[in-house]
Design a protein around this nucleic acid. Structure first.
Lengths: 240, 240
DNA sequence: CAATTATGACTGACCGGTCAGTCATCGTCA
DNA sequence: TGACGATGACTGACCGGTCAGTCATAATTG
């Protein structure tokens, strides 16, 4: 074993280091103490918090090492929990992994979900979408989740299925609707584009990959790239 | 898992046995046997063949399982070789993996390399490039190599560096030159495109990912998608 | 204090890497 | 040319470390 320390590593600043904190303080039930940093006295709340800590820790480890190379010992240590505790919440390593992806997908979708833009132009809608995507995904750790899905997806059909169903098909359907609106309005001059909404998001996908592989060789201004791409779709540049 | 047979599988039919064909039948055999399936008698030739068999086997295993989950026992079995033999040719698992990628990159580059198209239009040049790429890569096992690089690249900087240097930077430079030619000729109407050649290849990249993750959910006509994309760059559709 | 939850030592399978021994091939000499 | 010793490619049993998953025990809770 070796590897780093024997104490919780806690790469996730959010909620972790406290689980041991108040055990001496007021292990008993009364005094409803600071609920934000003290261990909640309720068992269910406590359990839920542990579960989240495990998922957060697993996220870091799986993203950093990939599925096979991740050790549950490390996940446990990082979560500030004993290894056995993981098995109180998840059937096995694979279940933890799949649950992790599922958990990560939801906020991902919410982040970049249908930008409900009432009166704007179609270009603005798509540009807003792209800006959100690039800022909230391509730049952050969420990008690694996407890379993780690409990397492990073929070996975990359940994950690929889930991702296709929850993200890809919905996203493309929404995008297609927007494109068709743009065609109807005359903003988009290439009607065939509605057949391949993938074309619209392709540069964003490429940006995600680029960031994780080649950013250090040659930085990429993803947002600017996407604007140029939009110029191809909508015509001449507009002010931003 | 899998296991398959205990005999060599030899997934790469190409040049496994023939390179030593001529002088082969000397060692002790009389009747010149089928040079395509008999082991060559020369020790060096034999060794080279084994090395190739190991790489071919490693390719299948690494692509199918990822780096960490691949067992060298399986590679050896698939190559029809004892495990120790692997270590006569490669320092360790990591060296085998990196060498494998290196070996795979060269034919990849040659396949889709500068399409020396003299008189044609820029669109034709790019379309030929895309067609070659999609037919020779996106459709074949080579796509898995790309996925493998995306998946493992962050953990193997040497591989990411190599890939960037040998493929990405050169490819983009060539593409940029072609784009600038197109701008000069007036074929490409968006001069900014030269700043982001990634946009041109993005749909091809997306096609590679799509094929390996979602093809079964929803088949994608990559070539047609790319044509639509070219329409965005060059304007109205041309006959093909 | 009984029930529930957490712990971490432990197990057993697994796998990367090693190495002493084998034998086909090669060089050499009669 | 044929025989024979030298060579080194090849083998696979083996070793040591690793890690997913278990379970008897301890701690906590209501």
């Amino acid at each position: 074993m070796a590897k780093t320390s024997s104490k919780p590593v806690n790469a996730v600043p959010a909620k972790s280091a406290k689980q041991r904190a108040g055990k001496a303080a007021q292990g008993r039930t009364h005094a409803p103490p600071d609920p934000a940093s003290e261990p909640p006295s309720g068992r269910v709340a406590r359990a839920a918090e542990r579960r989240e800590a495990i998922i957060a820790a697993a996220m870091d480890e799986f993203v950093g090492r990939g599925y096979a190379a991740t050790r549950l010992d490390d996940v446990a240590r990082r979560a500030g929990v004993a290894k056995g505790t993981i098995y109180l919440h998840f059937k096995d390593k694979e279940a933890l992994f799949e649950e992790l992806i599922r958990t990560a997908i939801v906020p991902l979708v919410n982040r970049i979900a249908p930008p409900p833009n009432p009166g704007g132009s179609v270009r603005d809608m798509i540009e807003l979408f792209a800006r959100t995507f690039i800022q909230e995904v391509a730049t952050t750790q969420r990008a690694d989740i996407i890379r993780l899905i690409v990397a492990e997806g073929p070996r975990f059909p359940a994950i690929a299925d889930f991702y296709y169903r929850e993200v890809v098909s919905r996203g493309l359907a929404g995008l297609r609707a927007v494109i068709e609106l743009g065609i109807a309005r005359g903003e988009v001059r290439q009607p065939e584009l509605a057949r391949f909404p993938q074309i619209v998001v392709a540069p964003a996908i490429v940006a995600v990959i680029w960031k994780s592989l080649f950013e250090k060789h040659s930085p990429l201004d993803a947002l600017e790239m996407f604007r140029v791409h939009l110029d191809l779709i909508f015509g001449e540049r507009r002010a931003t």
